[in-house]
Design a protein around this nucleic acid. Sequence first.
DNA 1: GTATATGCAAAGGGTTTGCACGGTT
DNA 2: AACCGTGCAAACCCTTTGCATATAC
Lengths: 139, 139
Amino acid sequence: MSTEWEMRLRSGGYRITPQRQLVLESVERLAHGTPEEILAEVQKTASGVNLSTIYRNLEVLEEVGLVTHAHIGHGAPTYHSIDDHVHIHLVCDRCGAVQSLDAGIAEPFLNDLRGATGFVTDVSHVALHGTCAACGALG
Amino acid sequence: MSTEWEMRLRSGGYRITPQRQLVLESVERLAHGTPEEILAEVQKTASGVNLSTIYRNLEVLEEVGLVTHAHIGHGAPTYHSIDDHVHIHLVCDRCGAVQSLDAGIAEPFLNDLRGATGFVTDVSHVALHGTCAACGALG
DNA sequence: GTATATGCAAAGGGTTTGCACGGTT
DNA sequence: AACCGTGCAAACCCTTTGCATATAC
């Protein structure tokens, strides 16, 4: 018998490899991992794994719908397991603080957007930038 | 007498240089320019200007409030004159199309966000990603 | 005259790619 | 046996930085 993730990969025409499995497990374990962080996590188990393998596998895992990524700051993207709660990131451009909140708050806006333009938006894909409450209070 | 932009620079403690002026004019002329594109535009007039000068001056011009930038795709950011209409970019992750629309549509959402979290959002700073009407119609 | 701006070249972070070898099917 | 996946190293794009020279003030 095959697990869910193995079937996903197989039906996409991809093979099951130890590296693939380790990358997937690491993404799940880290919850918010950059490629470098995922590499470090994978290397705890298999020290020989290369960064390029991480990138290639993240791409594959994303294509078959097992992970997604979001762009938070200006640096590397962070990867998530697909069944995490969908959330928005708010990045304060003054102090750099990042806060997450449930994506539900954006629903009415996304509906308006879809109504006006037909565009279906994935709000969680990029963080919103601005000024947080604390920094705003400083003037 | 000094022009508006000269005063802005001076009151920030910056000097007026030909390069500075050319960068500002190029941003205004291009409307949506990446640093490379701005360099090309500047070099039409002054071929000796260096890319690092473009970067340094975009930073200065942004600090004194004469230009802003937005992140549209995964590549370089695009710079705008500060008095352009504020707009949101919608990027289709399937076909890559980019559409602009007035930021007004996001007002209620931004108010909700501020109410819930105190966060003041600049929606125009990063593009929203998703699926455009045409691609969505294809299933 | 003095501090700031510039050009140049080198280095940096993040990511992709070509190639030969090894592993999955 | 055929092909896909991997490791390694080099290349890539975008951006920043150190340093000596030039220029705005």
